[in-house]
Structure formats: C-alpha cells, structure tokens
Write a protein that binds this DNA or RNA. Sequence first.
DNA 1: ACAAAAGTGTTTACTGTACACCCATGG
DNA 2: CCATGGGTGTACAGTAAACACTTTTGT
Lengths: 227, 227
Amino acid sequence: MKAFQSYKNPSLAVDLVVFGYHENELSVLLLNRNAEPFANTWVLPGAFVQMDETFLQTCSRVLQTKLGMDNVYLEQLYSFDNPDRDPRGRAISVAYYALVNPHKFTVTAGQMANDVVWFPVKKIPALGFDHKEIFKMALQRLQSKILYMPIGFELLDELFTMTELHELYECILDITIDRRNFRRKILDSEYIINTGTKRDGLQNRHPDLYRFNKKLKKNQFQLSVGI
Amino acid sequence: MKAFQSYKNPSLAVDLVVFGYHENELSVLLLNRNAEPFANTWVLPGAFVQMDETFLQTCSRVLQTKLGMDNVYLEQLYSFDNPDRDPRGRAISVAYYALVNPHKFTVTAGQMANDVVWFPVKKIPALGFDHKEIFKMALQRLQSKILYMPIGFELLDELFTMTELHELYECILDITIDRRNFRRKILDSEYIINTGTKRDGLQNRHPDLYRFNKKLKKNQFQLSVGI
DNA sequence: ACAAAAGTGTTTACTGTACACCCATGG
DNA sequence: CCATGGGTGTACAGTAAACACTTTTGT
C-alpha cells in the first residue's frame, strides 16, 4: 500500500482558549504577536501541528513552552476552516479550550510574543485571525458544559469553599444564583465532598472546605439555572 | 508577508455519518470500499479536503457525487487525529453528520465503492479506519441534540403526523415516551405547526398533518425524557 | 454585642409523569 | 358496530424557586 503524499494539504494549527479564574473574574490568556501577520495584535496562543503529534500533544507543547503550564483540563472545541482566516494561505485551526488555575502558573512571554496577559472575558480586545469567533464559541461551550459536567473545580484550588464554587458559577454564567438552592443542588449531586476541615483566618464564620469527588459518574450531575 | 509552505502537513479528510430514517428505523449510510486500505470493508463516506474547499463544500461534494444528495442538514462533529488511524500515513479526519430523508434520494455506488447501503444503527458491521468510533460519537450527539434543538423534522417529510414525530424520537433515543406527554410538550414548544390538513387513506381516524415552525427561536425548545 | 458571612429549613409554584376517556375512520 | 389508532384532559409526584432564621467568627 502506498502512502499518499501527492496531495497538497492545508496547514494545520491548534489554537487554545485558556480560561483562568481569579478574584471573581473569568479571564482568557492572550498573546501579543511580534511577527506578521497581525504583529502587535492580540491573538490566542497556538502552534502548527507537527507530523508526529496528536492535537493534545500540540496543546501540551504550547502550554508548556509558551505558557509554562502542564497538566491542565483540555477539550476539543471545533475546527475552523474559513479559507481567508489566515492571510498566509489556507490554514485549518483546531480549537481547544483549557481550564487552569492561574495561581499555579506564572505566564511569561515566549519568543513569538511581546506579551502574555490575562484578559477578563468581558474586556477582550480586537483579536487577529478569526480568534474572536473562536473565543466566543469557547465561552458558550464552557457556559453550557458547566451546567451538566463537573468541570468547575478545574479552575479552583484543590480545597475550596461553597461560596467560592458558588461565585465561580455566577461569574462564568454571568447570572445570580440563589446561594441556598445552589448549595443543596451541588451537595445532592455528590459533585463535591466535605473534607471536614475549615478555612480559617477570615473575619467571620469559618466555612467548610470541599474537594471534588473524583468517583462521581460523569452524568450524575445536572444543574438547572434560574436567575 | 510570505506564505508558509515549508512545513509538511497531515492529510485532511472529511468523513460523513449520514443518518436516514425509514420505516421506524434509524440508519446510517456505509460504503463498501473497493481499494486498499480496507478493501471490501464498510466505511463512512468521505473525501480529502481540497485546498480551495471549505469543510462544508467537501461534504456537499461527497453527498452529491457519491450519494446523489443535496441540501441536507450538516453539522460538524469532531476532528479525529489518532496518528495510526490511516495506514497510508498521517491523516486527520474532520467528521460531520448529516440528517437526510431517504425518500428523497436513491443512493448508488460511485467509483470508489462496490456498494452503498443503509445500515440500521443497531446492526452496524465492523468498520474500517476509526469509523466505528466516529459513528458512535455521531449517534450520541444526535441523541443529545434532538432533546434541545428542533432537528428531528430533517429526517421526515415536509408534512408529518404527531405519531410519526413521536416514533422518530422513540427510535432515535431508543426509549419509549408517553404519547400524550410528548404531544403536549412538543405543541407547547411551538416546534411544529398544525397545518389544518389531515392525512387520509388510512384505516383509522385521519391524523393532523404538521410542519416545522421555521420561525422558532433556536433555544425555545427543551424536551425532557422519561422512560 | 455587633457585623458579616456561613450553615440549615420551609413553603410555594411549576413541570414532569402516569393514566383514562372520547372521537373518527374503514371494514 | 367494532377494532384501531388519534385527539383531549386530569390527578399526583417530584423538583425548582423564593424566602427566613440560626450559627460562628473577629473586632
């Protein structure tokens, strides 16, 4: 059987929407490009897929070499194929989104970028390529996914309080959720486990600390949202 | 700005999971390959993406030239990147699924295939490449999507009865749904419109004919399933 | 003892679920 | 007039939504 190298193939890249949560704000990592095209423009981090790499390996390479991150939650989002999306020629982008805890990493600009900055999702600047479209789809996906899959904890520390989880949900969904109904729903789902320890050093009553229930079956969770 | 043609890029193909509904059975179109690799093996229809084609254009090309279909519902499913998925070399597959009404088309084998056949989703044979995995994901996607997006009518004639829609849902979800609760739920959602006409020529009471409500806002629809 | 945040419980409204009856048609 | 499938309605149960009170801590 012969290999097929006769065809010309589009370039293939992976682009990443890296979400981080900090101080009651959901943010996305953007790079400021220092090369054409879109020099001095903010874009999503990404890289071309090497012949021997899976998409996830390309993602890891970007996260490690450009952002100093490893071991983060990754999920494929969509593949973007507009023929005009890259002025250099035909290029496909397979978009992934990542959920990271910004406390664990310090981002620094790599060789391709002037700067690497967390931007709150409500203050995203103009982006190069079709990256605004990719970002919007990623945010929508995160908002719908968090309602039926236990992924919120990926953005928090290993131990967290109910209030922290509650505020995370309000922030991501951009709505207010009744504190008491949220608590009941989350606890009924066994999404999280009370560790028995408490966070102290605060001014008021010390809240219980929870951790994610790793034994949770994936579909065991369904949060309904009322405003 | 220079173009980037220095890199070697993976082959890029589109593969299609074409769903059709007929006689209370959900089926998928499969080709029997007549060339290596996987000669005489059933596979999903697909084609390599040309440099000037969007994914959807590639899908249309496959549907038209290989299957004689046009104007069908298409949605991107996922991109498959296992390095070993094609023995000829590195090949990415961007999978789409399609919903068609088999009454409208007659499938005939093209030059690449010995045969083109509708297989009931419960009787899918062994498939070449990673196509079984693609099929399984497509079926899951269809099953979850049909609960909150009005796409079921894509598989039916323009005018249909409530019973036909009801049976379609039972068939796709592989469960039984109470006839009367289904009816109320669907009508409340304004998913469909009663045309005022009836289907006659049947043995019993002539059922009302409905058509899809094209003015329906996309998110206005949510079907809960009980067994 | 006061303020502020955390933990707990109750009532109401709604939506899903189960189920029964009547209606229209062809044979 | 009977069998069969189609159309309509109702009672019950479970879940979501709105809401109030008590507890714990630091100052």
